[in-house]
Amino acid sequence: MALKSLKKQRRIQVVALLAVALVISTALIGYAMRDGINFFRSPTEVIAAPPQPHETFRIGGLVEAGSLVRGEGEVIRFSVTDGGAVVPVVFTGVLPDLFGENQGMVGTGRYVDGVFEASEILAKHDETYMPKEVIDALKEQGVYEAPDAGS
């Protein structure tokens, strides 16, 4: 009888230890990813509900025609639009080769004092690709036109 009770107690201890380990590992993963999860926002969403200056997020849309200005050094200024709103962007660094006006882009950074300060800029990588989030944001504003399949 004492042997069964000892096995049962040991089993309960192992299950409790596994539960505690699961909770701790989940907490550590969540803590590690707190800065790694960047939510996507369209320019309309950014203007409607501006994020806090410390919040890192992704913004996407089309680079507004006539807004691309290369400053001193590697500072680049442009505006991103989804057809409903326009958000000014400043980026210090080297832009992707396919980056240009009226082209789709996604940037990662922070919205500070009415300007999106980008730490990373991604551009579409061929003639037909555009990130799903950007297409959805453009469709919502009635701006998106699907590329011709035959060309």
Rank of each mutant, 00 (worst) to 15 (best):
M1A: 13
M1T: 07
A2G: 10
L6F: 07
K8E: 15
R10D: 10
R10V: 10
I12R: 15
L17M: 12
L18K: 14
A21E: 08
V23Y: 10
S25H: 06
A27F: 12
A27M: 11
L28V: 12
I29W: 06
G30P: 05
Y31I: 02
D35A: 09
I37V: 15
I37Q: 14
I37S: 14
I37L: 15
F39H: 14
T44H: 10
V46R: 04
P51W: 08
Q52D: 14
H54Q: 13
H54T: 13
E55L: 11
T56D: 09
R58Q: 15
I59G: 08
G60I: 05
G61V: 02
V63N: 02
V63K: 08
A65H: 09
S67D: 04
G71V: 03
G71C: 01
E72D: 08
E72M: 06
G73V: 01
G73H: 01
V75K: 11
V75I: 14
I76W: 13
V80H: 03
G83E: 09
G83K: 05
G83I: 06
G84N: 10
G84D: 05
G84E: 10
A85F: 03
V86P: 02
V87G: 08
V89R: 04
F91A: 01
T92A: 11
G93W: 06
V94S: 13
L95Y: 08
P96G: 08
L98K: 11
G100C: 02
G104R: 03
V106L: 10
R110T: 12
Y111V: 04
V112S: 04
D113V: 05
D113H: 09
V115P: 02
E117C: 02
D126R: 00
E127N: 08
T128K: 08
P131I: 01
P131Y: 02
K132R: 09
V134H: 11
D136I: 02
D136L: 07
K139G: 01
Q141N: 12
V143H: 03
Y144S: 00
E145D: 02
P147Q: 05
P147V: 03
D148Q: 03
A149H: 05
G150Q: 11
S151R: 07
